[in-house]
Each structure stands twice: as structure tokens, then as C-alpha cells.
Design a protein around this nucleic acid. Structure first.
Lengths: 238, 238
DNA sequence: CCAATAGTGTCTATCAGACATTATCTA
DNA sequence: TAGATAATGTCTGATAGACACTATTGG
């Protein structure tokens, strides 16, 4: 028998519902690596372990589920990410020691610089290299959630450049291409990559240049359409 | 009404959580039309209105969320669909008059014959032509959910043949093609359609033939790979 | 000049679109 | 035979892959 003392906080529908949380997986591109934001849990269960920057849906504060995701990300990074997309909902009796629980997962992207200042000043929030995170022992099923998010990003990279929201506001084509190469785990022909972006007219040329060692590279910015555009033909996955 | 002392089944976390439901959108192909399964609600709220064959996650019965979706579909059709995929989770303060609620939506496909017997015998479960369902006044936000599911199916049809699970176990290429034409809203070149299926080796030729008016057509069956296979190049959407 | 990085020219291979042609059945 | 539907032959066009080439900077 479970405790009855909490019954007074039961909502009016009077049905026993699972714990509901949101778990965003926030990625960025920094030092030529993919990184994921992890948070050290300050309370039970799994206290002390690292996990995703998620939390419980608060029906008094949050208008909808995406609001919860945004709220949690702002709490940990102090900024809203320019890219936030629902990933998958995982819910079962077994995934949380407290009992039946459900988590609505999101994939989010942000420029590293956009939240570096805040993240660097706190010790319980950290950017972790993706490969490392994928082998860490994380809270609950968070390692599995990261793997799902990573796979989704990989698929996306084959037919979209939306992952560019993990870069700084202004970036070079070489940076965007390298990010895609990391995501799909394979080198891409420079010609193919640039051609498709140019033909779909997905980037804004800022006119500025950045130089590091050789010929200066043009700096681009994402067009809003690049968030949703899908190429008809994928890059080669194999 | 079950009066099974709900409070005693209160989970130990003691946090107020939203109502959690599952709403599968079950599609089929029948009489050369896309149809969707609707159910007449027998209880409040929205009693009497038609809606999706969903229901509340029962943490005593269901192991995980997908189990709830399967359970609800079996209750309404008496069979498990061969295709069931999570679609999207919608949750907000406003979508249900009872207050903050969350629904995990699924897209499901089944052969019309597989559940025709059961559906035909009950008056509160009905196959409704998709176009009609999209203009009906349904319970809650179910019309919107159907639109989302329909759009996902449309996208899928451009790079996958998984929608074939809406057909009978054995089907002709003409049937599969027509289903795709309905989904993407445009006629497809027969040559293109057959070529890509043959090259990807996604169907099993049963060796049987079916005839209706002209040369007999070969009957095929889905290969398991056809559930997940993605063509590198999409069909033309425009 | 060289080294390094950015960006282009251009050929090939693949595969969807278009549409004509052939094949196999009934009446 | 004609009519209907299934299945194939074959040409064109679009675009990704491959890779060599040119361009622009610093030293």
C-alpha cells in the first residue's frame, strides 16, 4: 500500500497518473566536437549522477509541454535555444525507481558561445563531448535518450542543414560541413555540400569574411527556411 | 464506474501530474479510399462525440505507453495492428476541459479485412473516410491530431513503402501505388514506383496472381525490412 | 616562391519522370 | 478480334560523388 497523504494534491479528474517529466537533449558544436549539456542531479533519486537538463512538468507554471522544455533549458543555460524539436516520449513502469513515469524528450541546438558564460560559472552544469557522454553512467535512461537524439540528428543531417543551429550565428561553410561530417560519421564531398545549399538558397551571405591560415572564408547566417527545408535527395549514408 | 479506492494507488512521488492518455490514429485502405477509425465517446467529457480510439494510461495494466496504445486498439478492433509508430505528444492546460492533460499519439496501420468483422458488429466504432474525418467536429483536439498523422503519412510515402501495412497481407503493386498516390496527393509514374521497390528488394513475390478485368497481377507481401527502409531519393512532392 | 585554406569546373553515375511498347487475361 | 489491366524498354533530366583545378590570404 502506498501513502494516502498526497491524495489532497490529486487533480480533479481523480485518476492516478504517472510522473511526467521533460528531458531536452541540448547539443552544440565546440572545438570541432559535438557536445551535449549534462547536469549533476542535486536531489534523489539518482542524486549526484549526471543527467539531462530536464525536470517535472509544473502544471501551475507551464502552459504546455514545450514550455517546460524551454523553462528547464533557460534555468540551466540562461538562454533559449534557437532550435527545439520534440524527439520521442518514453514511459514505462520500470524507467524510474519512483514507479511509472513518462518523459517527453526534445532535441535542442544552440551556439556554444551563446551560453558559455553562464555554464562556465556553475559547477553542476557541463558540456560533455558526445562520445564521452554516450559511455557515461547517467541517471535513469538518459544515456539511451541521448543515443536516440544523436541518431535523429544523424538522419537529419542527410537531408537538412537544420543542425547548423548548433553553430555560432555567423559561420563558415567549412564549419557547417564539418559538423555534418561529425553527425553522419563520414566525409562529405565539398562540392556536393556547397552545391545543394546554394541551389536551395538556405543561407544568407553576410558579406563578412573570416580568415584562419589561408584564403578568407565567407561568413553565413541561417535563413529561417533552413530550419524546415528538406532536400529531395539525401547525402550518401554508407 | 470502478470505485477501487484510487487514492490507495497513488504513486509515491506525490506530485500533481496531468491526465495522461494515448491516442492512436488507425488508418486503413478500403474501397480505394483512406479511412480512419473513429469511436463514439460513451462518457463525459465530450460524450456522444466521435473521436480517436484512445484512452487513459492505466499504470496497473500497462507496462509502457505503447502497451496502452495496443490495448486500446485491441479493445476497439480485436486485433493488433502490424504497424504502430509514435507520432507526437501533445500536452497543455487548454486541450481538455478537465484541466492540464497530455496525450501520446500514435500512427497505426492495418488491413481493413483484418478487423472488419469486429468493427461491423458494433455501432460505436466506425471507419470514416479520411477527407470526411478531417472536416468533422471531433472530441478534443482529435481533428488536429488526425491532420498531423496524415501529414506524417504523406511525408513517409515519399521515401518509404511502410504505408503498405494498411493493405491486406497480399496485395498488387497497383494497389500499393494507388495508396501512395492518395497519400502524396499526386499520381506517380508506374515505372518509377516499381523500379525503386524492385531495386530495394522490399517485397516478397508470393507467386500468386489476382485478376480483375485484364492481365492477372502478381501478389506481393511486405518484407520486414520494408517497415524501416528509406529510399535515398524521394518521390517528387510537388 | 610555398603552405594553407576557400571556392569552382566538369565528368560520371544513379535514379526519378515521361511515355511508348509489349504481355496476358476475358468476352 | 477488342478491351482491360499488368509489366517492361528506353530516353531525358536532375543531382550527388569524385577529383582536379583556380583563388586568396600570410610568410
Amino acid at each position: 500500500m502506498k501513502q494516502k497523504s498526497k491524495a489532497s494534491r490529486q487533480p480533479s479528474h481523480g485518476i492516478v497518473t504517472p510522473l511526467l517529466t521533460v528531458d531536452p537533449v541540448l547539443f552544440t558544436y565546440d572545438e570541432k566536437m559535438l557536445k551535449v549539456l549534462l547536469v549533476r542531479r542535486s536531489s534523489e533519486p539518482e542524486k549526484g549522477k549526471w543527467g539531462l537538463p530536464g525536470g517535472i512538468v509544473d502544471i501551475d507554471i507551464d502552459r504546455d509541454i514545450e514550455s517546460t522544455a524551454r523553462r528547464k533549458l533557460v534555468e540551466k543555460t540562461s538562454v533559449e535555444p534557437p532550435y527545439l524539436e520534440q524527439l520521442q516520449t518514453i514511459g514505462s513502469r520500470a524507467r524510474d525507481p519512483r514507479g511509472w513515469s513518462v518523459t517527453v524528450c526534445y532535441t535542442a541546438l544552440i551556439a556554444h558561445q551563446a551560453c558559455a558564460g553562464h555554464v562556465d560559472t556553475v559547477s553542476d552544469v557541463r558540456w560533455v563531448e558526445l562520445e564521452a557522454a554516450e559511455t557515461m553512467r547517467l541517471a535513469f535512461d538518459h544515456r539511451e535518450i541521448i543515443a536516440i537524439a544523436r541518431e535523429r540528428l544523424r538522419q537529419r543531417a542527410l537531408y537538412s542543414i537544420s543542425s547548423g543551429y548548433a553553430l555560432a550565428e555567423e559561420f563558415t561553410l567549412a564549419e557547417l560541413q564539418h559538423l555534418h561530417e561529425l553527425l553522419i560519421g563520414k566525409s562529405i564531398q565539398k562540392r556536393s555540400f556547397r552545391r545543394r545549399i546554394e541551389q536551395a538558397d538556405l543561407l544568407i551571405d553576410t558579406g563578412k569574411k573570416r580568415q584562419e591560415g589561408g584564403r578568407p572564408a565567407a561568413l553565413y547566417r541561417m535563413k529561417p527556411e533552413s530550419m524546415t527545408h528538406r532536400f529531395v535527395r539525401n547525402l550518401d549514408a554508407s
